[in-house]
Design a protein around this nucleic acid. Structure first.
Length: 473
RNA sequence: GGUCCCAUCGUCUAGUGGCCUAGGACAUCGGCCUCUCACGCCGAAAACACGGGUUCGAUUCCCGUUGGGACUACCA
């Protein structure tokens, strides 16, 4: 068996999007599973739409997802000599020809054909003419066989048949001398020794043209595998309309790369009933045999669930490091210390994203607690001032300020005042966090520390005292 | 319009002719746990698009219908 060689070949006309990422992932997994090579090739022959920023965005996305490549990146714009060489070969063999038809002429013919209900194929005018090369503007076209059936054996779709008569003579070199997509892809895949072309379903219709090109160039076709597309919730191609489609947007929203990888791989591929896969498990178990044929709808809720899962699984020390940029974005300057790790430990059970985790840990670091209106109205009432006062005293007297001693204080106060713990915990929670929902109150008190807790309880008392006066309402 | 692809719970899927009273997961709904919120646990509801064949037997194989999608450029 020759070595497996796969490639990911994005065009740098935007960020790395969800669909592209999955294609890259499948190629990467297939190569890693087979101990083969994964190659990155940038298809930048569209000089109007290709940008440097997009190239960088693709690199960033791949790096974040952990999709490392063994060869490349190759750039098509640096390979013109190679394409020219192959075009010359085709011309020499009489398999390609110069075409001097103008874009306007072609457009006219196309509209006419459409109006008459015919197929808008190129009519082959210059194929008959056989004009030699000249300095007049021209493209180069490939002579497509007029008849015959073309069979492509796809590893996912099975055998797909196309009639050659449906195809026309495709342009392989544009008038500006640039090769076109279908031609450059074939030459690249040949010269890079690609054995498996794994790509989106949307390329299935290109495959017969490319197969013909392989034939014309006298090379064997690689194996093809057309992966079904990812659709938005309205069942059309995933696009910006459907929300975030950029891989890096998920990083910024606080997703973990392993969650996105796990989600993407399970969308279209399965291994029995298993839902969660480590990276090692994926490279071990991935196979094209278990890739489904039908398009899949992108389901943000399931991705969110997976993200929550991976957050729960992540070590507190890693989480605290990942959390810092999110805290800074919220104006909290935090150190990656033991306290932050304790906080992430509390919050990892209750956060679906790092952004959410940052939101719910803000109160630990803010100087002033901002009370949620409803929460304050319900729990910060005159009858709790007594409780707060007692707690301030008891906490003040504690030699050891930890979860156990704090819990004991709550227990004692609840017994002495004949109040259920919840009647104490909720007002305290609001006074310390501003909200009715937070991690366990003993943990929160312990992490905040004696001074902050007492300060915040005092502020709450002041808040309650001032509430009666209209100026503070 | 033409070409091609596709079709199991709302969604991702298991299922490769009898193991199917169709399994799992997300989401939804109920319950338990509990200092709140989550987490976790338990449970419920929820699908083989339709019509013909083939077969002793079809979710599974074949054909058609319907529905959805992709492509249809001197873009990739």
């Amino acid at each position: 068996m020759p070595e497996v060689r796969t490639r990911f070949a994005p065009s740098p006309t935007g960020y790395l999007h969800i669909g592209g990422a999955r294609t890259a992932l499948f190629n990467w997994l297939f190569a890693r599973h087979s101990d083969g090579k994964f190659i990155l090739r940038i298809e930048d022959t569209d000089r109007v739409r290709s940008t440097k920023e997009s190239i960088q965005a693709i690199f960033n996305g791949m790096e974040w997802l952990g999709l490392d490549w063994d060869e490349g990146p190759y750039f098509q714009t640096e390979r013109f000599d190679i394409y020219r060489e192959y075009i010359e070969k085709l011309i020499a063999k009489g398999k390609a020809y110069y075409c001097y038809c103008t874009p306007d002429e072609l457009k006219e013919k196309r509209t006419l054909a459409l109006a008459e209900g015919r197929k808008p194929k190129y009519d082959g005018k210059c194929r008959e003419l056989g004009r030699p090369k000249s300095s007049d503007p021209h493209v180069i076209r490939f002579k497509t066989p007029m008849s015959g059936t073309n069979r492509v054996c796809d590893m996912i779709k099975g055998e797909v048949k196309f009639e050659n008569s449906e195809l026309d003579d495709l342009i392989i070199q544009r008038s500006d001398g640039y090769p076109t997509y279908n031609f450059a892809v074939v030459v690249d895949d040949i010269t890079m020794g690609i054995t498996h072309v794994i790509r989106g379903d949307d390329h299935l219709n290109n495959t017969p043209r490319q197969a013909l090109l392989y034939e014309g160039l006298e090379y064997n076709c690689p194996r093809f595998a057309h992966v079904p597309l990812i659709l938005g919730s309205d069942r059309t191609r995933l696009s910006k309309r459907h929300g975030a489609t950029s891989v890096m947007a998920y990083k910024e929203a606080g997703y973990l790369p392993q969650a996105l990888v796990n989600y993407l791989v399970r969308l279209g591929w399965s291994h029995g009933d298993q839902e969660v896969f480590s990276r090692d498990e994926l490279t071990e178990k991935f196979s094209l045999d278990n890739v489904g044929k039908a398009a899949g709808l992108f389901n943000p809720k399931k991705l969110l669930w997976l993200n929550a899962h991976y957050i729960k699984e992540e070590k507190p020390e890693n989480l605290s490091r990942l959390l810092i940029p999110f805290m800074e974005k919220r104006g909290c300057r935090v150190k990656d210390d033991e306290t932050l790790q304790e906080i992430t430990l509390l919050l990892r059970e209750r956060s679906k994203t790092l952004a959410e985790m940052a939101d719910s840990s803000e109160f630990f670091f803010k100087d002033e607690v901002e009370y949620d209106r409803k929460a304050a109205k319900k729990f910060l009432k005159p009858d709790v001032m007594d409780i707060f006062q007692t707690l301030i005293e008891r906490f003040g007297n504690l030699q050891t300020f930890n979860q156990d001693t704090i819990e004991t204080v709550f227990g004692e106060v609840s017994a002495e005042m004949d109040l259920k713990v919840v009647k104490i915990a909720q007002p305290v929670r609001v006074s310390l966090t501003g909200s009715t929902a937070s991690p366990g109150i003993y943990e929160v008190v312990a992490i905040l520390g004696k001074k902050k807790v007492i300060d915040r309880l005092r502020s709450a008392i002041v808040f309650i005292e001032n509430r009666g006066t209209p100026s503070n309402c």
